[in-house]
Amino acid sequence: MPSYRMQIYGWLLLLPAAVLLIAFTHYPTVATLVQSLFLSGSVTRPAVFVGVENYQFMLEDDVFWQAVRNNIWFALGTIPISIALALQMALWVNRRLPARGLVRMAYFTPTILPMIAVANIWLFFYTPGIGLIDQFLGLFGLPGHNWLGDPDTVLACLIVLTIWKEAGFFMIFYLAALQSLPPELEEAGKLEGAGRWYFFWRITFPLLMPTTLFVVINALINSFKLVDHLFILTKGGPNNASTLLLYYIYEVAFSFFDPSYAATLTVALLAFLALVAIGQFVLLDKRIHYR
């Protein structure tokens, strides 16, 4: 094919997808930046350019900082545990285990359930007095607790739920990686008399590093974009103790009808995501699979 036709065909093939990507990813990203520099208008009054005023407001907004703190705790609480569990699950399911298929299915099931449905079910667990957790505690004569109504426990409740929802999903990536490891490695390890613990930490775990990195990035992005359960379980409460950044953006835009401030908050969220992206490149550059 002559090269000028290659050019034209290439771009024509790309065109439909490019139009939609530009319209719903690139344009809104730029529009968010622009919008964040204006004060929200109304029917009678147009939006006014205010420069960084929205950002000054954001930096003084306690709820914003609360959401950022919550997001950080939420990420720190969910990511290490769900990844450790995912790896353990994958190791179990990858070797001989009675009823392996059933076990694997059990681990994976939460992945295909919608977060909304899951939150509905978990709400019963956390309900004070008659919920399953309080009933279970009652068996041992322990008092009940308003798990979702207490600012000290509400975030932990969301973390437990999210770990349950995500671990099986991450397990899949580890399972795929484990199955691609050459079996000779394990035989060689056995011949050398390496214990399983030693073998895992010296051989398996380092070889799984690229997978771990991939899963960490995924988990980080998820911790910023997954807020569905808040709509059912807490609505960000009590007193914003469980609000997350994206949920706060939703509230500001669609409950308080302040699109400009919502855009400002979105810029903060985009900045976090950009940081994650940069971190990914730096780590990938270091090639952490072989140490």
Binding site: S3, M6, Q7, Y9, G10, W11, L14, A17, A18, L21, F24, T25, H26, Y27, P28, T29, A31, T32, Q35, I221, F224, K225, L246, I249, Y250, A253, P259, A262, A263, T266, L269, L270, L273, A274, V276, A277
Partner: peptide, 26 residues
């Protein structure tokens, strides 16, 4: 092979980080 292919591909991959969920307002 077309001019700007690599840049276009990089721009496509942006969506892996900035999913439509994040841009609900705009």
């Amino acid at each position: 092979r077309f001019v700007g292919r690599d840049i276009a591909f990089a721009l496509v991959l942006v969506q892996l980080m900035i999913m439509p969920e994040v841009l609900i307002v705009e």
